[in-house]
Every structure is written in C-alpha cells, then in structure tokens.
Write a protein that binds this DNA or RNA. Sequence first.
DNA 1: AGACTTTTAAATGTCAGACAAATAAAAAGT
DNA 2: ACTTTTTATTTGTCTGACATTTAAAAGTCT
Lengths: 243, 243
Amino acid sequence: MKIDPKSTADLSAQIAGAIRDAIMQGDLIVDERLPSEAELADQFAVSRPTVREALKRLAAQSLIRTQRGATGGAFVNRLSYPDAYAQQITTSTLLLSMNAISFETACEARYAMERACVPLAAQRRSRDHLATMRAEIHRQSQSGLTDEAFCASDVAFHRALVDGAGNPVLSYQLVGAVEAMQPLMNMITFTARSRDAIVALHVAIADAIDERDGVAASERLSALEAETLKLAHSVFVLRSAGQ
Amino acid sequence: MKIDPKSTADLSAQIAGAIRDAIMQGDLIVDERLPSEAELADQFAVSRPTVREALKRLAAQSLIRTQRGATGGAFVNRLSYPDAYAQQITTSTLLLSMNAISFETACEARYAMERACVPLAAQRRSRDHLATMRAEIHRQSQSGLTDEAFCASDVAFHRALVDGAGNPVLSYQLVGAVEAMQPLMNMITFTARSRDAIVALHVAIADAIDERDGVAASERLSALEAETLKLAHSVFVLRSAGQ
DNA sequence: AGACTTTTAAATGTCAGACAAATAAAAAGT
DNA sequence: ACTTTTTATTTGTCTGACATTTAAAAGTCT
C-alpha cells in the first residue's frame, strides 16, 4: 500500500483510500487485523493523529472496527446488513432532501422498485410478513393517529412487503428508497378520507399477496402510487395557494 | 447539539453523530459553515484532535467538505449524485463480497430491479441511451476481448438501460446493484458461444426498447437472467468438479 | 484615486510527545 | 490448581506547536 506524495488530497484521505482499496480488492480479508496505529504511522511515514483520522474515515463507512487493549487494534469489519441498511438510508435521505428532487421522481422510483418485489413476494410470502402487513394495516386504521405515526406505519407496511420477497439484497436496496421518502411523506397532511383510501389499498395489496396473485398486487400498488401522487399534488396546490 | 457523557462510544463518534443528526434534521443547511475546529472543541468540551476525528468521519460520508484558509472551515455538503453513486457502489460491493451471498440471490435482485426500469425506459428512451447501448453491443461483439473488458461493457450496457428510464433516483438505486455484481461476473469465464447468446439478448432488448415495447424488453431481460444463471451454474459446477 | 504588492490574521493540515483507560497475557502468590 | 497481581500493548484523548493555505487588510507606487 502506497500513497502518492504528489497528490493534493489530505494525507488521511489518501491513507484511507489505500486501505479501502486493499479491503475491496481482497488484500485484507474480513476480521484481519491491521497494523497498530504506530506501525501504520511508520509505514506511511506520517504521524499517529493522521493515521487515526484515516482510520476514523474507514470506521464511518463500517469498513473497520477498533478494539482497545493488548490484543486490540483495527480489524476489517464484515459489513452487516444493519450497517449497510443504515448507510443506505442516510445516503438516500440526504440525496433526496438536498437535491430538490420532485416528489414525482422519488415516488416513481420507489414504486417502480416495489413493483419489482411484488411477484417474488406473492410467490414466497410467509406467515410472518403477512401478519406484519395486517398488523400495520390495523394500526393505520385507528383514529387519532398523528400524521407521523401514520407515515411510520406506512413505511413498516411497505418494508414488510419488500421483505416478503425473501431476497435480502433486494430488501437492502429498497430500504433506502422507502425510508428516504418518509420525510417527504411527512410533509403531507393526511385527511381521514385519504387515510381510508390508502388503508383500503393496503388491504387490497395484502389480500393479493395472500392469494399469491402478483399481477393484482402490482396493479393495486400502481393504484396506490396514483393515490399518493394525487394526494401530494392536492397538498402542494393548497400550500402554494396559501402562500 | 449535546453529547451524552454516559455513553461508552468514542467521543468523536458521538460528536459526529450529533452533527450528522443536525444535518439530517435540517438544523444545518447546505453550504452552511460549521464553527471552526477550535470553537467546536470548546462547545463539546473536547480537544481539537477529537473534533477533527469527528469531522473526518462526516467527510467520509460526504456530509461535509473542508476548506483551508482565512474564510475556510467545514461546510455542509450538498450530497451530489456522483458522491451518492460512489457510496452506493462501495457499500453494495462490500455487502455482496463479505456476506457469502449466493450468485442466485444477487442476480435475482439485480434483474428484478432492472425489470422495474424497463417500462419507463421503453417509454422515455432517448437517442443517446440507445446509441450507448448499441455502441456497447458492438464492443461486446468484437473477438479477442478479455473477460474483464466484456464484463465492463456489459455493466455499461445495463447502466445505459437503467439510465434510459430517465429517473435519476432510480439510476442511483440501481447503480449499486449493477456494479456490485461485476466482481461476481468477473469470476465467470465467457466462452465465445455464451458471449454470442448474451449479445443476441442485448440486441433483442435494445430493439424492444427502441420499439417502445416494454413487455417484450422485460421478457428478454428475464431470458438474459436465465442465461446468466445457467452460465454461472455451469462455471461453478466445472470449478467444483475441478477441485 | 486607483492598481499593485505586502502583510496579517484565521483556518485547516500535520507533527511530537504525553498520559489515561482498557484488555489480555504473563507472573506471582496462595 | 486456582486466584490475584503485574505488565505490556493498544486505542482514546489531551496539550502545544508549527506548516500551509487563503482572503482580507494595509501599505506603496504610479
């Protein structure tokens, strides 16, 4: 592992990049211990604080974990699903909130991806996933729910739908799309009537999945997309009129 | 912003978390300047190196950027698509390579998501995307291509297909799924015959997109998935027999 | 007065050395 | 043989310093 002295980038960024490359290329394998900070400082001919900054960069991406003590050090971390989920959600949420992405674009992407899960979910759905979906539907039906709670339950319903496909990679990819929409959804005021419409579609989707009817579920998901878009539009129209 | 003195986590991790939360909650807006390292050290009652480690963590996630000089400092960064792409690819690649995910699972997720793009791509495909797809097909058809180059072109073809949907959020989500498969694909030896089969399907897909026939494109994408799976199986069978 | 140069101040980047705290292995004691 | 103590190693944190970059302020010349 070498760093380029001609580069203008921070030394800590260069070192982090070198180690990251080594991990991604397989030169460093999972649970392998990196040299101690002092040794790394020697190898790269930098000070220990600089090495530490590099290691913190990698830790932020869950590429390494550190342990104190005699047999401690920095170890190549196995990127777990929860870690990957968290990163996915952070990145997706920020991408959406910082780039003036229209509700339509985000919504379209999300529902397109969800429809990709539906055929698999219809085929493989388990008792667990169906139970979760029904439970969330029940929660959503209760009156007196805040908009935030309604949205949170909506997210949980859709996550159960996605997880129903039984493909963890697909779940990982989708979690960002679903969760990142929540801040946008939270801007919407859900009237009792619009909640009823959404819940009815949720029921219809759950029923279709239950009956292993992927085509029907897909169509109803599209109807839900249309309903969501309609709702968002009416809110935005109201809001811009209010201004 | 406060940190919890009872927490066992590193101070730098706590500080990074506090600032991250402030950014994600909108308390700090894009391009806003954070206090200087010395001021942050005062506010959090820690030393400057600790603050710096926290800032490096955030920089690793592209949440902030730093600038030297009189008017320099740390600024809340607008997460750009390229940055988001890079993070998505890193995370997806590591997730796949470190978690013993079967080729089938990864392949299924990827093609399910690609099929989600196809109806939109068929509807909106531009001259540019079609040209890119055709160009990559041409490249793939050349003999004497290494397996790596063939795979790279395959990725480029699929990215063009995805981008054809004209939804940047969808592209962002898909880029991880497509790119993360490349290391797995690179393990495959592509015979001349298997290359021909893949290229033929690429042509068929491009044609269908060209004719705005989303259904046909989707079916052919499924055929490509089956072909890829078959190919991978034959390779793995050969390999395990060789051992 | 206006344009150019020099100085200065503020900020990050880097370094050196030190001590604290955690941890496991080795040594000592019972 | 078991428990306790010591010790060595490693990360976590702090202090203080200097280097480098950058823009604004001050100064200088035409």
